[in-house]
């Protein structure tokens, strides 16, 4: 029942916004190359999807997101595990990690292109660098957050290190790891699109740059809509898998 007003709001709010947008373009006679009317953007979206020209670009971007997310998460999990287990190593590398973590990765993009070329590799590397840190931090936090009594219980029961890790430490770290994965997924989406801005001739990011430099405002706006929806979709996939994995909460 309580969903009802919310569902209505979710339909009404965009409708009102689109209505205002349309009214504004008509009432003030805004030139379409600055702000195209909603119907022009809708037509453009229809052309992209029904005509099928978007699919290779969408596939390219999704591929970079997936590769960057999987590699970055795996690396973040692995290093997070090592650092959580070996505080001495963590103290040693913490300053460097902090430097790398706070360094704006976008500024490193030209460096990645220099090192890894204009192809797919540098795009994936940029995405990995964005995913890696939030996942690593979440993993460390999660593994460290084990209540001391829980750890004593493991000792009382004489669990082997593997039992301790897989049966107790890892499952209790899942909530924090997921916070990291969610941030990582959003970052991966941003990273993939940005990397396509910088080089190459495929991908949603490339289409945006192309639309911008050739003054195709309806295409540009359509791409804004597509990338926003893509970001929401990627995030929702994570939220749903979190709900499923953490149903005990």
């Amino acid at each position: 029942m309580s969903l009802h007003p919310r569902a209505i709001m979710m339909l009404v709010t965009p409708a009102v916004l689109i209505g205002l947008w349309w009214l504004y373009t008509v009432a003030f006679a805004i030139p379409p190359y600055l702000l195209p009317p909603p119907q022009a953007v809708a037509t453009e979206l229809w052309r992209l999807f029904a005509g099928g020209s978007i699919w290779p670009h969408l596939g390219h971007t999704l591929g970079i997101i997936a590769a960057g997310f999987v590699l970055g998460s795996a690396g973040g999990l692995a290093l997070g595990f090592v650092l959580a287990k070996l505080p001495a190593v963590e103290r040693l590398v913490a300053p460097y990690l902090l430097f790398l973590q706070t360094a704006p990765k976008i500024a490193l993009a030209p460096l990645f292109i220099l090192w890894f070329g204009l192809g797919l590799t540098s795009k994936i590397v940029l995405t990995v660098s964005l995913v890696f840190f939030p996942v690593m931090v979440g993993t460390i936090l999660g593994l460290r957050s084990l209540p001391p009594m829980m750890s004593e219980l493991c000792s009382i029961l004489r669990l082997t290190p593997a039992q301790r890790f897989f049966r107790v430490e890892l499952p209790s770290a899942v909530p924090e790891i997921f916070s990291g994965l969610k941030v990582g997924a959003v970052q991966a989406t941003i990273g993939a699109i940005l990397s396509e801005w910088l080089s190459g001739g495929t991908g949603l990011g490339y289409l945006m740059v192309f639309a911008g430099t050739t003054y195709k405002a309806p295409l540009l706006f359509a791409m804004v809509v597509v990338t926003a929806l893509l970001g929401i979709a990627v995030y929702q996939v994570l939220v749903l898998s979190e709900k499923w994995l953490l149903s005990w909460r």
Binding site: P147, M149, M150, E152, L153, I156, L157, R158, L159, R167, V168, P171, S172, L246, W248, R249
Partner: peptide, 28 residues
């Protein structure tokens, strides 16, 4: 020699929250 010789009850229950009550009790 093994954990199975000593049982410990803490001030807090420290149950594993993702396991059912039965699974928690069977855990050891």
């Amino acid at each position: 020699a093994r954990g199975s010789e000593v049982g410990f009850v803490f001030q807090e229950p420290v149950l594993l929250p993702w396991l059912s009550v039965l699974d928690n009790v069977r855990f050891p």
